[in-house]
């Protein structure tokens, strides 16, 4: 039942909690060292992810699955960017930096810009003032959208102030309550993991 890894999680988790309450500099140094180790393990986890991406696309190419030439693009891009970054660094003027501003940056921002159309079309189909709650959602969204552009102020001078009030008062109240709920959920899940009650992260038990 994976007693060893569960024990390791308990020891590491309990140590981190204890170190938080010990202001001694040596305790803080141990804390920093453990966090650095976690950062290193995270970096290796990204290598694992890339190897996994590689094997998925290599298999698609080997088996000539429909659309396999696109997998070649992914593999070349993965290999090329990794090589550029490892060999020549990641500075803004490095080959990878220039590649990033030429390829990644436009692709990422255009992908997100594309969502503007889909959000608008989804909203047009889904937004119906069926009851009080739906009407509140609809009206607030419209006010926010009009109030955040200059034409909103042209229509009614109070729009920008109203949007600020919506963000600062009712939105803040709900977000604050959600943050408290999320915090309580995260703390209880973390405690369940440390105490070995939650073991799903270790995979299936045989």
């Amino acid at each position: 039942m994976y007693l060893g890894p569960i024990l390791l999680t308990f020891v590491v988790g309990a140590t981190l909690i204890a170190l938080y309450f010990i202001p001694h500099h040596q305790a803080q140094e141990i804390n920093s060292e453990l966090l650095l180790w976690a950062t290193i393990v995270y970096a290796f986890a990204l290598i694992l992810g890339s190897v996994s991406l590689w094997s998925v696309h290599a298999q698609r190419i080997r088996q000539r699955i429909s659309g396999w030439p696109f997998s070649l693009v992914t593999l070349f891009a993965l290999l090329g960017t990794t090589f550029m970054g490892v060999a020549w660094g990641i500075g803004e003027e490095s080959p990878l930096g220039r590649f990033y501003s030429m390829v990644n940056s436009p692709l990422a921002s255009t992908m997100f810009a594309l969502l503007a159309f889909f959000i608008a079309s989804a909203a047009f189909r889904a937004f119906r003032a069926r009851n009080v709650e739906a009407t509140l959602l609809l009206v607030t969204a419209i006010v926010m959208m009009i109030g955040r552009v200059s034409v909103g102020e042209f229509i009614w001078r109070g729009f920008p102030g109203l949007t600020e009030w919506l963000l600062d008062v009712p939105n803040l109240a709900a977000k604050r309550a959600i943050a408290i709920g999320v915090g309580l959920g995260a703390v209880s899940t973390a405690l369940k993991i440390i105490l070995g009650i939650e073991r799903g992260y270790l995979g299936r038990t045989r």
Partner: peptide
């Protein structure tokens, strides 16, 4: 287990 333990802590 180590990684999850760190971030739970």
């Amino acid at each position: 287990a180590f990684y999850v333990g760190i971030y739970s802590g």
